[in-house]
Design a binder for these strands. Structure first.
Length: 521
RNA sequence: GGCCCCGUCGUCUAGAGGCCUAGGACACAGGCCUUUCACGCCUGCAACACGGGUUCGAAUCCCGUCGGGGUCACCA
């Protein structure tokens, strides 16, 4: 039985790199019919764990990465919060002490610091001298009498080699002599991460520890703890991390400002900001950050697309296939096709993957996705009301591939704006309707449209073509002013779709308004 | 600095000794389609970090160099 786990710290957000790790863990478990466990590493956390955890759980849920055991769903190994498992860790520390694999140490920070600097001067790996190691209770008492407080350290081997067979990196060797006597328990009795992690992995019966590469050098100490406690070793798989756009550095949410200097990333952000502003977020910059998954949910990306893109960051199936549904990923995923080199996050590629998934989405689904945006932007009061629903479906159908994320519907706000409130782009109006000739032509076209029968996109197209022919002008000369009058913009849906969706009455009203002297201030 | 990992087009990657004058995708450039914008289609640009070996033959194996990254906490 395969059991994997994802162990986030409750930090208040779900990082893209973190999701990628979670995704691979989840995919591997699902692929093998195993279980995916969510464990919360809040060893060091104070209050507000619930609040800091919410975005993480929500993000995973949005992406469809479901967990079999963990917060909210419980499970046979509960609790799944490290902060609630302290007694188990203490028992493990006692056991380590009893077996002689750990010791109480009374060195002060200054004494340690001095040794460390000495090692650095001599250009060798720092290894603690164990000068303040208490071998007996009497020694411990003596140190304590000096006013020292003790921590528990691992009594690491000082010779030999550890060989790890990593499922993605292959054989990796470490010399035990280079490893530190890490502290596993503080003087106040609280335990540290590595100890906790190993104990939990054992108690949760984790078979495969799949995590980011930055943990590779932590592995020896964890192996030591596990072996000392007599635990069977899990299989390890260290994933390459997700790098910044255009660099090999690890992606970090703190460097947003730096990424914003990168053109593609800035565009991704700007596109999202525009949508968020339109739906009335007053402080979008504080909320929005494409390094975190909330961004994609808020702006209207498809979870399947995000998953697909993330899967491609470090994993590939072949040279000919990049598009996968969640189910296909589960079926096809394997760790031996995971790459070793870090992969940088590419906003452009992500958008391309999103576009492809969006193209495959049935119109009814798109209409559903898009509705909340119209509602929040106060363009549609009730999307389920039949006439509103019909209008939404028409616009979505006509928009076709122009709708790349759900929030893009706001590009077509003019279909949901009352005729008399339609905003005009002055530059466009000047260019298309600035001249008396253009205005006169449009006035004539208006009358032709008033008579065009039936009032459908196909018939309208014929009418407009015929009109241009009769007037002896090029199609463009009539089409551009008409678009400007109808939408106030120079770009948009197909003109005849626009006409048809608006309906005759509304179209004529808009033309009249555009033609009337600019009284609106 | 020690230890560990990594190194194919700008980016994601295919490639497990001859199928490679290195393939695909995204991006980019040009063109076609077209009422705008998208979409779509076509064409083009563009990479095996470097140096030594091994071999009849190396992107693929070995060694070295260089470069990049991770990690060295009483954080997780």
């Amino acid at each position: 039985m395969v059991r994997t786990r994802f162990a986030p710290s409750p930090t208040g957000y779900l990082h893209i790199g973190g999701v990628r790790t979670a995704l691979f863990c989840w995919l591997f478990a699902r692929k093998h019919g195993g279980q995916f466990i969510l464990r919360i590493d809040d060893t060091d956390q104070q209050r507000n764990v619930d609040e800091a955890l919410r975005p993480i759980l929500e993000g995973l849920r949005w992406l469809g990465i479901d967990w079999d055991e963990g917060p909210e769903v419980g499970g046979p190994h509960a609790p799944y919060f490290q902060s609630q498992r302290a007694d188990r860790y203490r028992q493990a520390v006692d056991e380590l002490l009893r077996r002689g694999c750990a010791y109480r140490d009374y060195a002060t920070a200054e004494e340690l610091q001095e040794e460390r600097q000495q090692a650095e001067r001599e250009k060798r790996t720092f290894v603690y001298s164990r000068r303040f190691m208490a071998r007996t209770p009497e020694e411990a008492a003596r140190f304590e009498a000096q006013g020292r407080s003790g921590v528990v350290r691992l009594l690491m081997p000082r010779e030999g080699t550890l060989v790890i067979d990593d499922l993605v990196r292959g054989r990796v060797e470490f010399a035990w002599a280079d490893e530190q006597d890490h502290v596993i328990q503080r003087a106040d009795g609280s335990c540290l991460y590595h100890l906790a992690s190993v104990v939990d992995d054992y108690q949760f019966e984790i078979t495969h520890v799949i995590r980011a590469e930055e943990h590779l050098s932590n592995t020896p100490r964890q192996v030591f703890i596990a072996q000392s406690l007599g635990y069977p070793l899990p299989q390890y798989a260290h994933l390459p991390f997700v790098a910044e756009p255009g660099s090999r550095n690890k992606l970090s949410k703190r460097k947003l400002d730096k990424y914003l200097k990168q053109k593609d990333f800035a565009e991704l952000m700007e596109h999202g900001l525009k949508i968020l502003r339109a739906v009335g977020f007053d402080r979008p910059k504080e909320i929005l950050n494409p390094v975190m998954v909330d961004f994609y949910e808020l702006v209207g990306y498809l979870p399947e697309a995000i998953i697909n893109y993330l899967a491609l960051l470090g994993w590939s199936l072949s040279d000919s296939r990049e598009e996968f549904t969640r189910a296909e990923l589960i079926e096809l995923f394997s760790l031996d096709r995971v790459n070793k080199a870090p992969a940088s996050f590419d906003p452009k590629k992500l958008r391309a993957v999103q576009e492809r998934h969006m193209q495959r989405l049935p119109a009814a689904k798109k209409a559903e996705m898009v509705s909340p945006y119209l509602q929040r932007a106060r363009l549609v009061a009730d999307p389920s009301e039949p006439s509103a629903r019909a209008r939404i479906e028409q616009v979505v159908a006509a928009a076709g591939d122009r709708l790349k994320v759900a929030g893009d519907i706001l590009e077509f706000a003019d279909f949901f704006t009352p005729d008399e409130q339609l905003p005009y782009d002055p530059a466009v109006m000047g260019k298309s309707l600035g001249s008396p000739e253009a205005r006169a032509l449009l006035a004539k076209l208006r009358d032709a449209l008033a008579l065009c029968e039936p009032y459908s996109a196909e018939a309208l197209e014929k009418c407009v073509h015929q009109f241009a022919a009769e007037q002896g002008v090029k199609l463009g000369q009539v089409v551009h002013p008409l678009r400007a009058a109808l939408t106030g913009k120079s770009v948009g849906l197909g003109l005849f779709d626009t006409l048809a969706i608006l309906g005759r009455a509304s179209a004529l009203r808009r033309i009249d308004r555009a033609l009337s002297p600019p009284t609106n201030a």
